[in-house]
Every structure is written in structure tokens, then in C-alpha cells.
């Protein structure tokens, strides 16, 4: 289906549902991955954010904004909402994280060096 969107017709505040600030602290480089959650009840742009995330794997807020041709602030607000609802998550490495004891040991070594 050919889809032509005009970025000026639907205004940013309608897309964000009137929100002007993200519900949580997020930067432009915050990485996000899509979670497997029901799409129903989401606005079109929220589904587009999830769509682009699930297609490309982990994406930063700035990249999502570029892909969807949306203002970064809008994507930040949308992504924060989607994180709140469990549709998006910050990717957490599981296997690569070193043991806490190792980290403590490294910290101690560094202090000794200083």
C-alpha cells in the first residue's frame, strides 16, 4: 500500500496526545528495543515507533525520529510512554555483565593506582 503522509497535517501535540514532556528521563542516544506486547490501543505513531524498532533491532531515539520523520521531542515523548506501557525497553545485557565482585576488585585496584 502506498502511503503518503504529510508531516504538517497531524500536529505534534495531537501525536503526543497533548503531552509536552516525556514521562521519564531520556536522551537522544537512549537505545530502545521493541518488546513483544499487544499493539491494540496504540496510536498510529506509537505503532510506527514499535514497527521501526522491531525491524531494526536496537535504535536510538534520534534514529527513530529520523526514520519516521518526526521531531525528536515527539519521539522522546512517545518512546517514554511506550516504555511505561511495556512496549519498549532499554536493552539490558545479561551475559556480558561482569560479576559485582570483579568490578569491586577493579575499583579497588584503580584507587590504589591513584
Amino acid at each position: 500500500m502506498k502511503r503518503r503522509r504529510d508531516r504538517d497535517l497531524v500536529r505534534a501535540y495531537v501525536i503526543t496526545g497533548g503531552r509536552t514532556r516525556p514521562s521519564r528521563e531520556m536522551g537522544l542516544v537512549t537505545l530502545l528495543v521493541a518488546r513483544d506486547a499487544p499493539l491494540q490501543g496504540l496510536a498510529p505513531e506509537q505503532r510506527r515507533v514499535l514497527g521501526v524498532c522491531s525491524r531494526h533491532g536496537a535504535l536510538s531515539v534520534a534514529e527513530i525520529a529520523a526514520h519516521l520523520d518526526l521531531p525528536p521531542s515527539v519521539v522522546t515523548i512517545l518512546a517514554a510512554g511506550l516504555m511505561d506501557s511495556g512496549h519498549l525497553a532499554v536493552p539490558a545485557p545479561e551475559s556480558d555483565v561482569p560479576e559485582i565482585d570483579v568490578l569491586k576488585e577493579v575499583l579497588r585496584g584503580l584507587r590504589e593506582l591513584v
Binding site: 502511503r3 521493541a34 499493539l39 510506527r48 514499535l50 514497527g51 521501526v52 522491531s54 525491524r55
Partner: peptide, 14 residues
């Protein structure tokens, strides 16, 4: 939800 997501992604891509 996953097929729907893929469909949405596709519409955006075209």
C-alpha cells in the same frame, strides 16, 4: 501482535 507489527513496519517502508 507480531504480524501486525510487521505489517505496520511494511506500510512505513513503502
Amino acid at each position: 501482535p507480531v504480524p501486525a507489527l510487521a505489517a505496520e513496519a511494511k506500510t512505513g517502508a513503502e
